[in-house]
Amino acid sequence: MKKYKLYYLLALLITFVACSKETPYEALTDSKEGVFINITKFSGNAQNLKIFPFVDEARTIDFSSSYGGLGLPKSAINVEYVIDDKAFDSVNVVRQKSGLPLYLKFPADAYAISNMNATINSGETTSQGVTVKYFSKKFDPTKDYLLPLSISNAGGYKIGPNKTIFIIAAKVAEINATSISWIATANSEQPSGENTGKASALLDGDMSTIWHARYSPTPAGVYPYIISYDMLAPIYVTKVAIAPRQNNGNGPLTFKVEGSLDGASYTTILDNQTFNPDKRDGTYQNYAFPAPTNIRYLKVTLLTGKQALSFLSELAVYKY
């Protein structure tokens, strides 16, 4: 019986020693052989920032560096970063050859970097994080921006191929938001004898249909004519695009645009705009807002025209 107990204790001791033995992947070492330091947050070479909708507060992204090799660092590793102008220029060379617009550098007041160095502590594989704060209102949403940050020094260790994070503030896509589900009204309509004569015709994307001011029964309409949209939910409007009636050039000459969130209090966005009713070539005339404007209700007031009656083919709304 004592013999069996001895064997049992010996087996436990062997098991304990085997389990407690450090594997090569856990061993602490200062060897730099086969070890690389890389940027940890590395996805498709780029990190895209959220620019829109604009906010007053800073948004942030984070990244760090990682230790890649057999074992774990015995001593702490100091990693240093730099804004990589060489990488910036290299990317723009490729874009130029591809016929793409060149990136702009981040505006100096549009971002802040928390620290330009970080430490991978002993026994760890990842450094402390670096936070990049950015202010969306400082970027022009019609431009592309690039901020490359690279590892410049890894405490004597080799810098890996994923040494750079490309932080991109891409231009915001402008899209046609016009929907036939919106509610379109006008202070004067001709619902019979025209195609269709109603304000809703301005939403359908069909230049053969028109809104027409009332002429029958009398009294006929007179300027100013007010066309209103309820877009059902707030959107950031960037411009309106207007198409004249395609078979008659006696349309409006001047107009203004107002917007509202509640449908009661309106703000003038564009005033005394000039329109060409004779440009009947199947295209729109575009009127950009000074800045993207968050509104639900849109009001276009036609101020003057070639004659007392008025008409339009389309009134489209674009947004970010």
Rank of each mutant, 00 (worst) to 15 (best):
Ala108Tyr: 00
Ala112Leu: 12
Ser265Gln: 13
Gln285Phe: 02
Ala220Gly: 11
Gly123Thr: 06
Lys2Met: 10
Leu9Gly: 05
Pro161His: 04
Glu174Asp: 13
Tyr266Gly: 02
Tyr215Val: 14
Asn187Gly: 08
Asn272Pro: 09
Ala186Val: 04
Glu189Asn: 04
Ala241Lys: 07
Ile227Lys: 00
Asn115Met: 07
Lys137Trp: 04
Glu124Cys: 15
Phe16Cys: 14
Ala118Glu: 01
Leu70His: 04
Lys158His: 05
Ala110Arg: 09
Ala173Asn: 15
Thr304Gly: 08
Ala87Thr: 14
Lys105His: 15
Asn176Ser: 03
Gln96Tyr: 13
Ala169Gly: 08
Asp278Ile: 10
Phe63His: 03
Tyr215Ala: 14
Gly123Gln: 04
Gly71Val: 05
Ile151Asn: 02
Ala316Arg: 15
Asp85Gly: 06
Tyr8Met: 07
Lys97Leu: 14
Thr267Val: 12
Leu309Phe: 06
Gly123Leu: 07
Ile39Ala: 03
Ala186Arg: 01
Met1Cys: 08
Gly282Thr: 09
Asn286Arg: 13
Asn78Ile: 07
Pro244Glu: 08
Ser98Cys: 09
Gly305Cys: 07
Val257Ile: 13
Tyr25Glu: 15
Leu9Thr: 08
Asp262Gly: 11
Gly251Trp: 00
Tyr103Trp: 13
Ile235Arg: 08
Lys319Leu: 04
Ala87Phe: 13
Val82Asp: 10
Pro224Ser: 03
Glu174Ala: 04
Pro141Arg: 10
Tyr229Asn: 10
Asp89Gly: 05
Lys50Thr: 14
Ile242Glu: 02
Tyr145Cys: 07
Ala169Trp: 05
Ala186Phe: 00
Ala27Thr: 10
